[in-house]
């Protein structure tokens, strides 16, 4: 049996956050809450990326200061790849929110409600 160390606590936070979000997205009946849950799940994963690219101590952002030797820079800067994934996922998340918001507004226009229990034209 492995015991989590202090350095692994952020992972546990991500695990709990992701589970709550997946639960809410699957079982909540309010469409807007479902959307928020999905968006928070994206953020939980973004947090996971940031944790995995973080460097303890005197770390600097992944921008090389003028005159610094690249090998020194590589040993103190944080992981740019993890940051890249987060930047990309944030933009994609925005597109998701725009799409789902437009659809939810139209659903409200047609049905007068955004509770999935009351939207029952189709049988599923």
């Amino acid at each position: 049996m492995m015991i989590a160390t202090a350095g692994q606590l952020p992972y546990i936070l991500v695990a709990i956050m992701a589970s709550i979000c997946i639960y809410a997205a699957l079982f909540k009946s309010n469409l807007f809450k479902k959307m928020l849950a999905i968006f928070l799940l994206t953020d939980a994963v973004n947090l996971l990326f940031i944790i995995q690219g973080y460097r303890l101590g005197n770390s600097i952002p992944p921008i090389i200061p003028p005159g610094m030797d690249p090998s020194d820079f590589a040993s103190i800067a944080v992981d740019p790849l993890a940051h890249y994934f987060v930047v990309t996922a944030v933009v994609i998340g925005l597109a998701e929110v725009a799409t789902l918001t437009a659809l939810i507004i139209y659903t409200y226009k047609h049905y007068g409600t955004i509770e999935t229990k009351k939207i029952k034209e189709l049988r599923g």
Binding site: I38, L41, L81, F85, L100, I119, L122, G124
Partner: peptide, 26 residues
């Protein structure tokens, strides 16, 4: 529109779960 929002929620949830797995693979 109802079909669209249903499909939207579940498909985007699926893709986000996939995103979680890519973070674990990384």
């Amino acid at each position: 529109v109802e079909a669209g929002i249903k499909y939207g929620i579940y498909d985007i949830l699926a893709i986000t779960i996939y995103y979680l797995s890519t973070a674990m693979i990384f």
